[in-house]
Amino acid sequence: MKKSKILIGAAVITMAGFFAIAADHIDAPAVAGGTSDITDIYGFQGQNNDNIVFVANVQGLISPTDTDGAAFDENVLVEFNIDNNGDAIADLVIQATPRDGKMYFFGPIAPSQPGLNSVILADIAVQNEVDITAYGASAIIETNNGMSFFAGPRDDPFYFDFFRFGDIIAGNETMFSSPGTDSFAGTNVMSIVVELPKAIVGSGDSVNIWVESKRKQ
């Protein structure tokens, strides 16, 4: 009896290892569970319809107990990439990186170089900064020249019956259960939120965005 329970436990762990957790949580071996692991990104129209909002969440599956001790990594740079002419190449980046309790933002500005390596454009880009909101504190928001900034722990907005999906992929189940169970309920992420005028990011009907995390070498 006990043994079978252990085996089931082991199977769940193995499954989690094999079928990396969605949406991008723990998506690949090199970043799984680390400080550069992107969990989700979002792009949507702001409360002010002239604005667009970009969200990057990192470090998923943080329990409430661990959230007070969770922190952004000062060696990690998070870059919002914006392609405004449809070629999937970044025309603008917004760089975000923490230092000593503040999240610093640079841009939007044209990237200094294409590809996988970046330097922080601290000398030439528009700089903004916001105090990182502590766990349990009211959200600290910095607004400057029409742009707003936030950084700190938040509820993970993602929801999915991931474990059932794993069972289906593994051949142990043939369909989702109803109702399903949100595998991400009750967990937190470290969140970076930027809102800015649409006119700054592009003049066409749409932009393509993606987020990259990069580590200091």
Binding site: D24, H25, V31, L77, V119, I209, W210, E212, K214
Partner: peptide, 17 residues
């Protein structure tokens, strides 16, 4: 200062997964 090298990226949800 310094060079930052890419570790993770994401566009649409769950694509890599």
């Amino acid at each position: 200062t310094g060079v930052y090298a890419q570790e993770d990226q994401m566009g649409r949800p769950a694509i890599n997964t």
